[in-house]
């Protein structure tokens, strides 16, 4: 088992609020890790620290062999933030071309890659449409394409399928599973239990700490719950990790 990411003792405080309280995390290569937690549990803070956008007050993280933040890993990192994070006045293709330039991707490669991504997220028709005129769900799909454009080895997805219909969500998850089988490591935050069950491993973040971790089946067995939602409620009520 090869680790893509290893974080130890991550702490981060914003004024009165302790966003992360000594968090440890390991991500295995080629696995999908799902992070579940309420709003304000610290999910986005954790992603921002791991991506090198935020410095932790304490603790450290290593990713793809380098201590975070490191310029050396940036080209291998994919990140889809919660917000749309696209240029609304540019077309879908122009957005992709711009980010392709930042990753030094040749124009031809961007075009090919965009075509295959558009097929997965069903955006072929909209490729020349201005992003601002697309629906929220479509914009999120474009955002996902931008995050995957440069074939990153480690991908962070912050609520990637909000506003995306069930059928398309399945298609996106199938693609994520394909990526994982090609040794890409995926870290995803979600509110949807349907998505959580598709992860190889899930963790429950509660008040800046990982309350529990395991495969979906392990969590169900440990808590004796029928659904993951029920399992998380039990774990949160206990307030301590049952592992």
């Amino acid at each position: 088992m090869e680790l893509t990411l290893r974080a130890q003792g991550l702490k981060k405080r914003f004024k009165e609020r302790q966003a992360l309280a000594g968090l440890n995390l390991s991500l295995e290569q080629g696995k999908i890790y799902g992070l579940i937690g309420h709003n304000g549990a610290g999910k986005t803070t954790l992603i921002r620290i791991l991506c090198g956008l935020l410095r932790p007050d304490e603790g450290e993280a290593h990713m793809l062999g380098w201590r975070v933040p490191s310029f050396r890993i940036q080209s291998q990192l994919g990140y889809m933030p919660q917000e749309i994070a696209l240029y609304p006045d540019l077309t879908v293709m122009q957005n992709l071309e711009f980010f392709g330039d930042l990753y030094d991707l040749p124009k031809e490669q961007v075009r090919e890659r965009a075509s295959s991504l558009f097929e997965i997220v069903r955006l072929q028709e909209q490729r020349h449409q201005v992003v601002g005129t697309l629906s929220g769900g479509m914009q999120r799909r474009v955002s996902l394409c931008v995050s995957l454009l440069h074939k990153p080895r480690m991908i962070f997805l912050d609520e990637p399928t909000v506003g995306v219909d069930t059928k398309l969500r399945r298609a996106i998850w199938e693609h994520l599973e394909q990526l994982a089988s090609a040794d890409v490591t995926i870290f995803v935050t979600t509110h949807l239990m349907e998505e959580a069950t598709r992860c190889h491993k899930i963790g429950l973040l509660y008040q800046g700490q990982l309350l529990t971790e395991g495969t979906p089946q392990e969590l169900l067995t440990r808590t004796g719950a029928k659904t993951l939602e029920e399992a998380f409620t039990i774990i949160e009520d206990q307030g301590v990790s049952p592992r």
Partner: peptide, 14 residues
Amino acid sequence: TSGTLTRLLIAPVR
């Protein structure tokens, strides 16, 4: 505010 700066700075751009 739109988040594009985040994407820009996560990309290999100094």
